[in-house]
C-alpha cells in the first residue's frame, strides 16, 4: 500500500468515526432484515411544546441497550413481533377470519401507529391502537377481546408499530381530540400520591438528571411497546403509566381507563416529530 492510499484510508476512517460521533446522538441506524433503517432520536418540538428539544428515551439508556435496538436480530422485542405475525395469519372467532383476511400483509398498517390515539368518529370517542385491534376481534372476527396488557395484545401493537417505524409521530390534538388533550395535560401537571409528584416534575423539569441511579428521560412514548430488560417482555403504554403513578405512592388508574386514554393523547403528542420506534429496547 502506498502512502497516498494509507493516508486516504486513515482519513476515511477518521472522517467516518468523527461523522458517527457527530450524528450518533441525533439518529439511530437500525440493521434490519433487508437493509438499514434510520430513526430520529432528537428533533425540533411542535410550536406549543414546553420542551426545547424532543429526545428519544433511547438517548438516556446505556450504549449496550442502544446497540440492542440498533439491530433487529439483537432486539429481544422482535421475538414477540414474530408471535404477533403468526397470530395475524391465524383464523380466530365465529366469523372464521384472520387479520390477514381483511388487511392482507401487516405492512398495510404503515402509518397507523404514528397517529394513535385517534378519535373514532363512528363511535364518537377517542380510541387507542388497542381499542381498534379489539374492535376488529369482536366485531369483525367474532373473537374474544384481548385484555389490554395481555401478551397477545401487546405483541400485536408491536407488529403494527413496526410497520410505522421511522415515521414521525403525528397525533392530532385539535378538533375532536382537544378535550382529551386538555384532560391529559391537566393530569400531566398534577401531583399525585403521598410523594406529590407530577409527570412534569421528573420528565419536563428534570430529564437528564438522576434519581439515585435512574437517568430520567422525557417520558416519551414513541418507542412503545417497549421491551424492558427489567421484565424481559414487551410493555404497553398504559402499563408504564401505571408504574410511574404507583411510584408516587398514589392510587393508579386502570389500563384502558378514560384517564389513561386522555393521558396517552397528551403524552403521545409531546413526542410529535419523534420517530415511531416500537418495539424499542429500554431498561
Amino acid at each position: 500500500m502506498n502512502i497516498l492510499k494509507k493516508t486516504t484510508l486513515i482519513g476515511g476512517i477518521l472522517a467516518l468515526s468523527l461523522g458517527f460521533a457527530a450524528t450518533a446522538q441525533d439518529t439511530l441506524t437500525i440493521a434490519t432484515e433487508t437493509g438499514t433503517q434510520e430513526i430520529m432520536l432528537k428533533v425540533k418540538p411542535p410550536a406549543w411544546s414546553p420542551l426545547p428539544e424532543l429526545i428519544s428515551g433511547l438517548v438516556f439508556r446505556s450504549k449496550e441497550t442502544q446497540s440492542l435496538q440498533a439491530d433487529d436480530f439483537g432486539n429481544p422485542g422482535m421475538v414477540f413481533v414474530e408471535q404477533a405475525w403468526e397470530s395475524w395469519n391465524t383464523t380466530d372467532g365465529s366469523a372464521g377470519k384472520s387479520c390477514a383476511d381483511c388487511h392482507g400483509e401487516p405492512a398495510k398498517m404503515a402509518g397507523v401507529r404514528a397517529v394513535m390515539p385517534k378519535f373514532n368518529k363512528d363511535k364518537g370517542e377517542m380510541w387507542t391502537l388497542e381499542m381498534y385491534i379489539n374492535n376488529c376481534r369482536t366485531d369483525r372476527m367474532g373473537a374474544d377481546a384481548w385484555k389490554w396488557n395481555s401478551g397477545s395484545m401487546v405483541s400485536m401493537t408491536g407488529l403494527i408499530s413496526l410497520q410505522s417505524r421511522g415515521m414521525p409521530m403525528n397525533v392530532a390534538i385539535d378538533g375532536d381530540a382537544a378535550p382529551y388533550w386538555e384532560q391529559g395535560k391537566e393530569m400531566y401537571y398534577s401531583s399525585t400520591g403521598q410523594l406529590e409528584l407530577s409527570c412534569a416534575n421528573c420528565h419536563e423539569d428534570n430529564y437528564d438528571n438522576y434519581i439515585r441511579a435512574d437517568h430520567l428521560s422525557q417520558g416519551q412514548i414513541n418507542g412503545f411497546p417497549a421491551y424492558r430488560l427489567k421484565n424481559a417482555k414487551l410493555n404497553s403504554i398504559h402499563n408504564r403509566f401505571k408504574g410511574c403513578i404507583r411510584d408516587t405512592r398514589a392510587e393508579t388508574y386502570k389500563e384502558g381507563s378514560p384517564e389513561f386514554i386522555a393521558l396517552e393523547v397528551y403524552v403521545a403528542s409531546r413526542g410529535n416529530g419523534l420517530s415511531v420506534e416500537g418495539p424499542s429496547v429500554r431498561n
Binding site: 398534577s190 400520591g193 416534575n201 403513578i245 405512592r249 398514589a250 392510587e251
Partner: peptide
C-alpha cells in the same frame, strides 16, 4: 418537588405505599 416527610393529609389519590391501590 421534594416530598413532605411529616405530613398525612392533603394528597391527590393517595395510595397504600407502592401497591398502586388506594389508601
Amino acid at each position: 418537588m421534594m416530598p413532605s416527610f411529616y405530613k398525612k393529609s392533603g394528597y391527590i389519590r393517595p395510595g397504600n405505599a407502592y401497591t398502586g391501590k388506594a389508601s
